[in-house]
């Protein structure tokens, strides 16, 4: 039973709710580092390490962290693991560390990690949260590696750094440059639209992510932090409406009384 549930979490992350292809989360890293398959793979695995560790710790602490300060607490936990991963990469894979550059510390603000912490790890037991982290992490890694492979294959005629295209092939250099990232993702999303594959771009779907998974619509992925504000504004609007109604009613009443006053002396 437990095993089945665990496998289901992993499958969910890789296929059903793939963070990039289906949920469109974490776009910055996706577009920036996928100039080659190796970079994509490295970024994916680093993110996965942070995701699994933070999911595990947040799940362990889920009964201790008070609801009011959970966001700052999650951010501190995630930032700690990101720093660890950053130092490990710097020490053991310096080449990857240099080519990923600023995007390693920026794993902190990757919406996938905070999203999973809020939506899954904070309400589920440790083992399942770990599996969820592994599944989402694998889904992210796979997607980054695929985008990286496509860009590297057509953009520089190689795969994982090994030249594979024949000599006469002229690489489409724009694909490994900045605009190419947008084009490759646009074409991938268009193919998903064409085949009606589930994706945040073409389907109103219900995700158990805090923000509903609509990164394209939600304007910045901190819907979770934004909830309080939205509630406040709604309350304010309701209050204003009620006040207006009251005033309107009072005016009506006054208007109804006036003719009587005016009529009395005559």
């Amino acid at each position: 039973m437990m095993f089945k549930k665990a496998m289901q979490r992993i499958g969910n992350g890789i296929l059903k709710e793939n963070p990039i292809f289906v949920l469109l989360l974490g776009m910055c890293a996706t577009l920036a580092v996928t100039t080659s398959a190796i970079n994509g793979l490295g970024m994916g695995l680093s993110t996965m390490a942070v995701l699994v560790a933070s999911n595990g710790l947040i799940s362990l602490l889920r009964k201790i962290i008070p609801a009011g300060v959970r966001m700052p607490a999650y951010i501190v936990i995630i930032a700690t693991f990101v720093t660890i991963v950053q130092l490990v990469l710097q020490a053991y894979v310096p080449r990857l560390y240099t080519s990923l550059g600023i995007f390693i510390p920026l794993i902190v603000v990757n919406c996938i990690i905070l999203g999973r912490a809020e939506a899954y790890a904070s309400t589920h037991p440790v083992a399942l949260a770990l599996c969820d982290g592994v599944g989402m992490g694998l889904g992210f890694t796979l997607a980054l590696a695929i985008i990286g492979l496509v860009r590297e294959f057509f953009g520089s005629g190689s795969a994982f750094g090994i030249p594979v295209m024949p000599d006469w092939y002229e690489p489409v250099a724009i694909l490994v440059m900045a605009p190419g990232a947008f084009f490759v993702l646009a074409i991938l999303a268009a193919l998903q639209n064409k085949w009606h594959a589930p994706s945040a771009t073409n389907k109103k779907h219900d995700s158990d992510l805090a923000c509903g998974g609509h990164c394209a619509d939600c304007a910045g992925c901190t819907a979770a932090a934004n909830h309080a504000q939205v509630a406040e504004q709604t309350a304010e609007n309701v209050r204003k409406l009620a006040e207006e109604k009251k005033q309107a009613a009072a005016r009506k009443k006054a208007a109804a009384e006036k003719p009587d006053e005016g009529g009395a002396p005559v």
Partner: peptide, 9 residues
């Protein structure tokens, strides 16, 4: 196929 996000990208 390009409606929505693809055309924006």
């Amino acid at each position: 196929a390009f409606q929505g996000m693809p055309i924006v990208l």
